[in-house]
Amino acid sequence: MPDFNVESDRLKMRIANPDDQSKAMTRMGRGPSLDYITYAPGPRDVGARNARGGAAAAGLRMAAEAFNSYSLHHWLEKWLENNQGKILEAMMAKGHRAFVVQFNYSENNFAETRSYFPRNAFLAGTVPTAADSGEVLTAQFMYGPKADAIPPNSSTKFRYAYLVGELK
């Protein structure tokens, strides 16, 4: 799951309730062993070569997923910096010290490499303190009907993260 703990020079944001967020996808375990057709010495050490190649491919996949997850974190960090003035203005208008943000992103599991794409983020409301975020994050708001786009394929899932931010 991507890291949603972001900060700007005057604001910091974290995930509202980690239990309500999307769970990480589970992966299959190791495949069948090819050791029964190979012998260690000689030209038939195919299993060892396959294991090394598989380990290298798994390492590249993990690095690609980590980089992709960081790109989502970076996008959210830039969004917070760019909208800091509007958020502070909305908080000061009501005398509040905390705010709630809904962040929409898509998760794609294509070719066994999970990728994330930011879709949108918006200020859902302001609250007196971060502990009062339940005033905005009601069951109707979080789980109610949503008008959303149709995913382009069956491997794309639209996800929503609810973030609570406050003044530093």
Rank of each mutant, 00 (worst) to 15 (best):
F4W: 05
N5H: 08
E7S: 14
R10P: 08
L11D: 15
K12L: 10
P18T: 03
S33A: 07
L34N: 12
Y36K: 07
G47C: 03
A48G: 11
A48H: 10
N50K: 02
A56K: 00
L60P: 00
A63R: 00
E65R: 00
N68F: 05
S71Y: 01
H74R: 10
K78V: 12
W79T: 06
N82I: 10
N83H: 14
N83G: 09
N83F: 14
Q84R: 09
L88D: 10
L88Y: 05
E89F: 08
K94I: 03
K94P: 00
H96K: 01
H96P: 03
R97L: 14
V100Y: 07
V101P: 11
V101F: 10
Q102M: 15
S106C: 12
A121E: 01
F122T: 01
A124W: 02
G125N: 01
V127T: 11
P128W: 00
A131D: 14
Q140A: 15
F141A: 14
Y143N: 12
Y143P: 01
G144D: 13
P145K: 13
P145A: 13
A149I: 04
I150P: 00
S154D: 12
T156Q: 09
T156C: 02
K157S: 02
R159H: 02
R159E: 06
Y160N: 13
Y160G: 06
Y162T: 05
G165L: 07
L167Y: 04
K168S: 14
